[in-house]
Design a protein around this nucleic acid. Sequence first.
DNA 1: TTGAATCTGAGCAAAGTTAATCATTATCGT
DNA 2: ACGATAATGATTAACTTTGCTCAGATTCAA
Lengths: 259, 259
Amino acid sequence: MNNTNQSGLAAERRDAIRAMLRERHVARVAELAEGAGVSEATVRRDLAELESRGFIRRVHGGAVSLEDAVREAPFDDKAELAAAEKRRIAEAALQRIKPGDAIFLDGGSTVLALARLLADRDRLTIVTNSLRVAALLAGGGPDMIVVGGEFRRISQTFVGSLTRHAIEPLHVDTAFMGTIGLTAAHGMTTTDPREALTKELIMRNASQVVLLADSSKVGTVSFVAFGSLRDVDVLITDKGIGKTEENRIRKRGVEVVKQ
Amino acid sequence: MNNTNQSGLAAERRDAIRAMLRERHVARVAELAEGAGVSEATVRRDLAELESRGFIRRVHGGAVSLEDAVREAPFDDKAELAAAEKRRIAEAALQRIKPGDAIFLDGGSTVLALARLLADRDRLTIVTNSLRVAALLAGGGPDMIVVGGEFRRISQTFVGSLTRHAIEPLHVDTAFMGTIGLTAAHGMTTTDPREALTKELIMRNASQVVLLADSSKVGTVSFVAFGSLRDVDVLITDKGIGKTEENRIRKRGVEVVKQ
DNA sequence: TTGAATCTGAGCAAAGTTAATCATTATCGT
DNA sequence: ACGATAATGATTAACTTTGCTCAGATTCAA
């Protein structure tokens, strides 16, 4: 990190801070101060400004980028592997879709992997509250209905009362849901109450609910619970899931598919 | 930076300032003053002028270029000109937005050019039925509400009854509308009935309606009429508009701004 | 749970930037 | 060449930005 800023133009410095954060994803205030060649106080003010504009998120001691790094190829084995896992899960989910179906796709990277596989289908109606899914299918493919609402930048989804009203009259054959946390004890959990409300309403309006969650989600608990495991028909995950947790989830009436 | 400008022609100096900014992307007032061989006061005046025309953005201490530095040479004069025209129109529209406003942006390339200029604003709420606008502002910037609905691929917008229901409870200060055709006789026209219905409802829910239409639209008629010229407060267009049509539109009570 | 270390935001003074005003110089049409 | 008009540069008061200090909040480890 050595973008030492010579000209001292505030706007330029903020761009540099954004760039540093995009690249490293997280950084401490002290690092950013050194990188930009200004005091920590100034970096804090910049971060407050950038946060209010939605580019970054403040955390104690530093900040996290909310922008997608260009994902240069420094060969992140772990992310690589996770992406392959997600695609395997998405492929298994594909089996549950019949021609002519109306399906719901919510936010989250695993569900996004499924959307990618559907991009050249027709005879299918997709309902989604995810901007990423919408953008992915904007070029062509199935019919698409987007439920709008307030835009939540962190998850790139639409939430709030407008979203709920938009979902209300819609009924889908199958809802493909993502989750942040999943345990038999706490059920499905996510980070945002508005997100949780949206997910609940979707599950209520679907004949069948398929939960897509790689094994890293299983056993973790997030902030807000949504729905109930009893409403989930199928969980599609990978072989990394623990036997104990798997059995407990099965006992809640969920069919578990390990891909 | 050593473009010291001797000839003393103001227009030439402004071109030089634009060029310096294109090249370096940002520069301080002092640097530009030295490069142009004039006082800082003059540079500030030039920068104000260039900003009002949409070529640059002023920042504390200097300025940022809004023009693409890369300017590859295939030199598509026509597209070049059209894009510049659109940006000039968008820049004029910017004047009609106050901090804290809620505004509507509909589909269409001129309105998209306006969205681009708003990407780093905060203190602003943007409502849109355009996926392109949504994607453009997804990274950061103003608060955003997207009115969803059936996705119409040709225009990359949301239309239909879901969209109408989503718009109904929303009221904005200013609606910035695009159109396919515009004549005094037929009013505003577009290609799709559902699109037309959406536009009408938006105009009804806005305190002020600003129509953005480059002069190529003026005098052409499309398939479905929407709204009435009486509901339009301001038309922002370019100098290519014909005198006759301009006067007829003015007689309908529309303020015409030629950029 | 407690304490040490760290982080944060608020207030403040110094430095830098801006916009407004005004006197001076350049340009233009006749 | 002349006066009218516009552009420029200097001056200054108002505003922004910045770095510093300090009291209170937060984190982490014992």
